[in-house]
């Protein structure tokens, strides 16, 4: 049991480190294409964390939707807007804006870390059980049926909206 816990912790910290690095690279790299690829790292790291949390269905959906669909969309977006291949120095706002953004980000992080550590201290996960896909689907189609239906309408609206916005006429 202890061995398992240790293994879990080690896995978590390795993946977390990769994710943080990846995320920082996404927002600092000078190459748009690289940013997309670093994003892939962050997203797949998130999927791995979900597996650590025994949430198999979300992990699989993360891979399918984010890595399979959204990243491809981003690549299309990059392609269609004819971004420069190779380094581009004109991706960021001017220095002052960057400082403000960094300041806000650090402040926010400090605030959140303080309240999280203060609030949850040493709360441990209990006995982590696999959350089965069957349970998830049961929950969606009974308790959360109405939000689910609303979501389908939202997707339809987004679909139509995207077409209307992007088409040439």
């Amino acid at each position: 049991m202890l061995a398992l816990l240790v293994a879990q912790n080690i896995a978590f910290y390795i993946i977390a480190a990769l994710m943080v690095v990846g995320a920082i690279r996404v927002v600092t790299t000078k190459n748009v294409m690289h940013a997309a690829l670093w994003l892939v790292l962050v997203l797949s790291g998130a999927a791995a964390q979900y597996i650590l949390l025994a949430a198999e269905f979300v992990a699989i959906t993360q891979v399918l939707v984010y890595l399979g669909a959204i990243i491809v969309l981003f690549l299309f977006g990059i392609m269609l807007t004819r971004a420069k291949t190779g380094n581009d120095d004109d991706l960021d706002n001017k220095k002052s804006a960057k400082f403000i953004g960094a300041g806000i980000g650090v402040l926010l992080l400090g605030l959140m870390s303080y309240s999280l550590i203060d609030g949850f201290k040493d709360t441990e996960f209990g006995n982590l059980m696999v959350q089965r896909t069957a349970e998830v689907s049961d929950s969606i189609f009974s308790t959360y049926l109405l939000p689910f239906e609303v979501l389908s309408v939202l997707l339809l609206a987004a679909l139509i909206g995207a077409i209307v916005i992007a088409r040439r006429d």
Partner: peptide, 12 residues
């Protein structure tokens, strides 16, 4: 930026 700064202040 104003939005997030405001959020920080409020959260603080």
């Amino acid at each position: 930026s104003i939005l997030f700064a405001g959020a920080v202040v409020l959260a603080g």
